[in-house]
Simulated assay, not measured.
Amino acid sequence: MNYRILIVDDDREIAGLIEIYLRNDGYDTVLAYDGEEALRALEGDEPVHLVVLDVMMPKMDGLTVCRRIREEKHLPILMVSAKAEDMDKILGLMTGADDYMVKPFNPLELSARVKSLLRRAYRMPSETPAADDAIRIGALRIDKNTHRAEVDGKPLHLTSTEFGILHLLASNRGRVFSAEDIFQQVWKEKYFDSNNTVMVHISHLRDKLEQETGDKMIATVWGVGYKIDG
């Protein structure tokens, strides 16, 4: 599959450098230099599979763009920003981004993050139909083959990262996973003690589950981690 990545940054030099890195990895790219241009690019005829999104931009900032994208689309979003504070990162993730990188960043790290997000978002189902081995918890059905979760047949709109966390916990009901365990199994990267990414995604996932099922489902075992009973 030939992935197409939308790069959104008002700094044309940075946007151009990111484009070079991603094209060297074999991806198709399209550039946008403000939020409004980014949204227009997403409505074009050519599909976009991932967005690299700057936060601080004229006309419409990256947080607003991220919210607008999440109203209709569930493609992975990698947010990039010069803001390095934890609260800035948490805000970006709560807005709907799948991952967050601080400028300046190492091109190899950018490449690794993009590959990880694409791998989680576009796992292809097997060509031959498999037996229905989907996980069911009450009205919730989680199908790893189609990368889809639904409640009473209605799609539960999750990002690829949220789906990964939900599937991990639901397929190991009763087992407690630490934030480090979750990060290493879903992100496939080294975990750092100051990393709040898992906590933010768990919070977002709980809100969505509660809205659709009336149950947050994910229990916190204080000082240990997270689990789903059932």
Rank of each mutant, 00 (worst) to 15 (best):
F105N: 04
K89M: 10
L117Q: 06
S194L: 09
G16M: 01
F183N: 08
L63Q: 08
S126K: 11
T146R: 15
Q211H: 10
D181H: 10
D34K: 09
M60P: 13
R173D: 06
G223L: 06
R40A: 12
V224I: 13
S116M: 14
D229Y: 04
E109V: 15
V114W: 00
E127H: 13
D207Q: 12
V151K: 01
A112W: 00
D99A: 13
K144W: 04
R67G: 05
I69T: 05
I20W: 00
L39A: 03
Y3G: 07
M87F: 08
K190M: 07
L108S: 14
K103R: 13
I218M: 08
F105L: 09
D45L: 10
G35C: 12
L156A: 12
L108T: 15
I20A: 05
I69R: 03
M217G: 02
C66R: 04
K144R: 15
D98N: 09
M56T: 15
Y33I: 15
I218L: 07
D143Q: 08
V30E: 09
E109M: 08
K144A: 15
L93R: 07
R206I: 09
E36C: 12
I14H: 03
D9T: 05
D181Q: 07
I137E: 00
N2V: 13
K208C: 05
L169Q: 03
K83N: 08
A134G: 10
S178D: 01
R206Q: 11
I182C: 03
V51Q: 04
N196C: 08
